[in-house]
């Protein structure tokens, strides 16, 4: 399963618990330009609900989020 989108930024959120995954994600997204892609990995199961909610509230596009074993991989495109 290969990802056709090449990320501009990679973010390691492993080991972090609420609220740190969304906080670190926002701090990383803030430094990016509109249209850029960020790919992240987390281990907190809470991100499956939290990152989609963060994307809806902040107005960024969640391209994908999926569980791979004990990790949660996601791709976000900065829209604003």
């Amino acid at each position: 399963m290969s990802d056709p989108i090449k990320p501009d930024v990679n973010l390691d959120l492993k080991g972090l618990l609420c609220p740190m995954p969304v906080v670190k994600l926002q701090l990383a997204v803030k430094k990016m330009a509109a249209g850029q892609i960020i790919e992240g990995v987390a281990t907190d199961p809470g991100v499956m609900a939290d990152i989609p909610a963060w994307a809806r509230t902040s107005g960024n596009e969640l391209v994908s989020i999926e569980q791979q074993g004990k990790e949660y991989h996601f791709v976000v495109r900065k829209t604003t």
Partner: peptide, 12 residues
């Protein structure tokens, strides 16, 4: 502080 940081991280 968790709610405050979460909301601020969501652009509020």
């Amino acid at each position: 502080f968790i709610i405050a940081t979460g909301a601020a991280a969501s652009g509020m």
